[in-house]
Structures are given as structure tokens and as C-alpha cells.
Write a protein that binds this DNA or RNA. Structure first.
Lengths: 181, 181
DNA sequence: TGGACCATGTAACTGGTTACATGATTAG
DNA sequence: CTAATCATGTAACCAGTTACATGGTCCA
């Protein structure tokens, strides 16, 4: 369950649930995504287990949480003692597997979408990168994560541009009834 | 729901549920993963909806399925009319966000694990690539998907090697109590 | 005073994992 | 004959999404 550890990791500075929702939509979002309907109950559970504590109550009933000593210990334990979950789920690549069923022009359309998406994402990441220069250990860890996003997204963009070229020069190929695996 | 479309895409050639399980563990696995306990019930549903049909019954009660005309139409409809789901979930990157909480030597250990993992995956993919030269439209689509895996995995490996170097030259930095975001 | 946004929560449902369960065939 | 592998299924549970629900605060 990475959600709780993503939350614990984010709560080393005090934040409200609402802050966390926005944080998941922004920087944390390139590693893990979550909706408010999942975040709020999880915060309640973490508090119940003593891994986070509520440190303030704000204007509109907002609750500010922060990680506890036990929470930090649990986070360290998770990092040290458990292996990363490697499951891959990429809807776009599933689509590529069946792309040969489409008309040539439709394939181009799909691949143009991939190029556009990766370009936009990459631009976001690079803007984040330009915003500050990391100086602290934590800042450097965040930069490492961001750099992962940039490197892999750049590769995805390169792939999409190359695939689009391939598909363009492939226009006269028939769409298939073949079984070549 | 990408699982059913991954199955439909795989069933343009006749396959048993067991074949599909292995297929998800091998090539399809770099796009989507699924266990037999999810695959068998989904096959039953697809058959119930007429999107696939059973074309043979084998020795140990094995059932061979193939996509129907309606199934192919559904697959095309999905490709044309729905947008790829872009949600990212990467446990390893969540870990990087909190990596600054570990002792320097533990950070190196984590990053060495990332290097090893990416190297192994990349080697698998490159071996798949060397196995055959695609000639048909379908073969070329599969190659496109494989090439995506290779390009992005190579980038992940490059990142991990670079991050490891960073962390090695970072050994004298304190582990942090800072709040630099 | 009304619209945008802040802020939190619950319920129903879907997707996915783990564990349970069973039996057939094949190769040594 | 026995271990590995083939082969399919179900049940309980956990994770995540969508939709429902409510109300506060701020700014124009």
C-alpha cells in the first residue's frame, strides 16, 4: 500500500488533507495519484494508528496533520524492509498492441496524441525543475524523483516521435488479417 | 477497463486462458499485468457478451477462445473513441521522495537495486527484440510496443546509474531534518 | 449576493490481489 | 509412483473511482 507511505512522506511538513489533494495533483502526481475520497479516510486511519497527528485546526474545518516519530519509523521500515512493487500498467501501450487494426490515418492520430501528451508532461516537469535549485538532502531527493520523470518522459516522447515517423512511412501497408506474432 | 481490451487484442489468435496467463507474464506484461484469477472470470464475461467465442476444448479441460467480429468491432471502438488512461503509479518513485530519511549507505543500496532491476528488464526486452524481425502490420505494432519498453527502460536505467553516482558523491551530506520543499 | 474555491466526508461500485480449491497429464 | 506442470475456477479482501453530500470563506 504505497498511498499511506506517500502520505507519510508528504507529512514531514504540516499539511491539510486539501493541501495533500493538491500535492498529489502536482508534484507527487508523477509518482502516485489519489483522489480526496481516498486521502481523507486514509488520513483518519493513519491518525488512529498514531503515525500522524493533528497539529492545528483552520478556518473552514480544515485539519493540519504532521508525521509522528512512529510514523517516521514506519516510513523508514517500509523503505528498508520492503521491495518496490514493480507492476506495470500502461493503457497507451495496451493500445499499441492493437494499433494494426486501425486505418492508417487513425493510427497517426493516436500517435500524434501520444507525442502531444508527452511533450506537455515534459514541459511541466522541466518547468518544475527550473523553479528552484535543491540545497538540502530532502530537496535533492525530490530533485532525483523529478529527474526520473524528466528522463523517462523524454524517452517516451522520443519513442512517440519515432513511432509516428514509422507509421507515416507505413501508410501504404495494408491493415492486417495476419497472425504474425 | 484495459484488461478486457488487452484480452480482446490477444485473442485475434486462438488461445486458452492458460496461454493468456503466460502471455501476460511475458510480452503483454510490459504493458499490463493480470493474474489467472482475474483472467478466467473476464473470459467468461467476454464470452457471455459475444465478444469472444470458444473454438476448441483441449485435454485437461482447457478451453480455446478467439475474438469474434463483434469483439473486433468493440476493440476498434475502444481504440478510436476512448482516450488512454494516463494515471501513473510508480512505487519506486514514491520511495525516492523519502530517500533522504535513510542513512547514506542505505540509499546506495536502494539505488543499486534500481540499477539492477532496470538492467535485467532491459536485457529481457532486448532479447525479445532479437528473436524476430517484424514483417506484418501486427508484427510491426508489437515491435512498436516493445520499442516503447526498451526506450523508457533504458532511460530509467540511465537515471538510476546517474542517481547512484549522485548519491555516492553525496555521502558526506547529513541526513536531514530540513523542510526544503 | 452570488460564484469560485476551500474543505471534508461517506456510499456504492469496480478493479485487482491473495488464498483456497480441485483435478488432469506428462516426464522421469 | 510422484513431482512438475497444465488447467480452471471461486471467495474474501483490499485498493481505487465515481457519485453523492454538505457547508464555510472570500472576493467582486
Amino acid at each position: 500500500m504505497s498511498l499511506r507511505h506517500a502520505l507519510l512522506g508528504a507529512l514531514d511538513v504540516p499539511r491539510t488533507g486539501y493541501d495533500l489533494v493538491k500535492y498529489f495533483d502536482a508534484s507527487l502526481g508523477y509518482a502516485w495519484s489519489a483522489r480526496h475520497s481516498q486521502i481523507y479516510p486514509e488520513l483518519a486511519r493513519l491518525k488512529g494508528e498514531g503515525l500522524i497527528e493533528q497539529v492545528a485546526e483552520g478556518p473552514r474545518g480544515s485539519k493540519t496533520y504532521r508525521i509522528t516519530r512512529e510514523g517516521t519509523e514506519e516510513l523508514r521500515r517500509w523503505l528498508r524492509e520492503t521491495a518496490p512493487e514493480r507492476t506495470v500498467r500502461n493503457d497507451a501501450v495496451v493500445r499499441v498492441f492493437s494499433l494494426w487494426l486501425l486505418e492508417p490515418e487513425e493510427r497517426l492520430e493516436f500517435l500524434r496524441g501520444e507525442v502531444a501528451f508527452s511533450r506537455a508532461r515534459l514541459a511541466e516537469y522541466e518547468q518544475l525543475k527550473d523553479e528552484d535549485e535543491p540545497r538540502t538532502p530532502k530537496g535533492r531527493a525530490l530533485r532525483l524523483a523529478l529527474e526520473y520523470g524528466i528522463q523517462t518522459r523524454r524517452a517516451a516522447l522520443g519513442w512517440a516521435e519515432w513511432a509516428l515517423e514509422q507509421a507515416e512511412s507505413d501508410l501504404f501497408q495494408p491493415i492486417g488479417q495476419d497472425t504474425g506474432e
